[in-house]
Every structure is written in C-alpha cells, then in structure tokens.
Simulated assay, not measured.
Amino acid sequence: MTTYMVGYDLGKPGRDYDGLHEYLKSFRTYWHNLDSTWLVVTSESAEQLRNGAGRFLDNSDKLLVCQVTTPGAWRGFGESGSEWLMKYL
C-alpha cells in the first residue's frame, strides 16, 4: 500500500464537489485535515487515483497526486492527526 497526497484547486467555487469528496472517503484509510489536501492509502497507482478523482472535476480545476514518503514534518495538527501521519508516512 502507498500513501498519496491528493491536492486540488477548484476553478468554480460553489460548485458541488460532493462526488469528489465521497470518492476520496471511499478509500479505507484517508486523512483530511487541510482544506484542499487529502492523503489516501491505496494499492492503486498515482495515475489510477488521478483518473478516479478526475471524473469529478472539470477543465477549470487543477489536481495533483504525489506519492508521500518519510521523512515528513508538520505542525498544528491535533493528536489524532499527528498519530495518523506518523503511522502512514
């Protein structure tokens, strides 16, 4: 299993992106503590993840999918957020 960062910039604020959010929540293990950034743990490739999330976006939206590895550094997240990061990075 691999941890990926999924970041997006939505070109049409106010549009319904519930489908995108439900897709990202469909991964058994995910982290969503930043507005437009998710971390998901999956056996899918970055391209498969991009294509899956891309079904819910339009041409004005931007999407970035990157593999996340250690070392990592963060601040300002509560205990549960930090524990998740320590476990899956």
Rank of each mutant, 00 (worst) to 15 (best):
M86K: 15
K12V: 10
P13Y: 09
H21F: 11
S26C: 07
L57N: 03
D58L: 07
S43D: 10
D61Q: 08
A46T: 07
R55I: 06
L34G: 04
L20C: 06
L10Q: 07
L20G: 09
M5P: 03
S60C: 04
H32V: 01
T2A: 13
S60K: 15
E79N: 07
Y4M: 11
K87N: 07
L39I: 05
W84K: 02
T29L: 10
W84D: 04
A53C: 13
L64S: 07
K25I: 06
L57G: 00
L49H: 00
N33Y: 14
Y23M: 09
Y8E: 01
L85Y: 06
L39F: 15
D18W: 11
L39V: 10
M1S: 14
G76W: 03
E44R: 15
P13W: 11
T70I: 08
K12D: 10
Y8L: 10
K25C: 08
V65C: 12
R15Y: 13
L24E: 01
N51E: 15
Q67A: 11
D9G: 04
S80Y: 03
T2K: 15
M86S: 12
W38E: 09
L64V: 08
K25V: 05
T42P: 09
A46L: 02
E47L: 06
A46R: 14
L89C: 14
F56T: 01
R28Q: 13
K87L: 04
L85W: 03
R15A: 08
E47K: 12
L10S: 01
L85V: 03
T37H: 00
G52D: 13
W84G: 00
N51Q: 15
L10P: 02
N59W: 10
L64M: 12
A53I: 09
V41T: 05
K12F: 07
G7T: 10
F77C: 02
S82K: 06
L39Y: 15
F77E: 00
Y88V: 02
S43N: 13
D61S: 12
Y4I: 08
G72M: 05
D9P: 03
V68Y: 00
H32D: 02
Y88A: 03
Y8N: 04
A46V: 05
S60M: 09
D16K: 15
L85F: 00
M1I: 05
Q48F: 08
C66E: 02
Q67M: 10
G54E: 09
R28E: 14
G72E: 06
K25S: 09
N51G: 12
L24F: 12
R55K: 14
Q67N: 08
K62C: 06
T42H: 12
T29D: 14
Y23N: 03
E44P: 05
Y17V: 02
V6M: 08
G19T: 04
N33D: 06
T69A: 13
M1G: 14
T69S: 15
L10G: 01
L20K: 14
H32Y: 06
N33C: 03
F56R: 05
V41H: 15
Q67P: 04
S82D: 04
Q67L: 11
V40H: 01
R50E: 12
P71K: 05
K12L: 06
T2E: 08
G52C: 03
S36W: 00
P13M: 09
Y30S: 10
S80V: 05
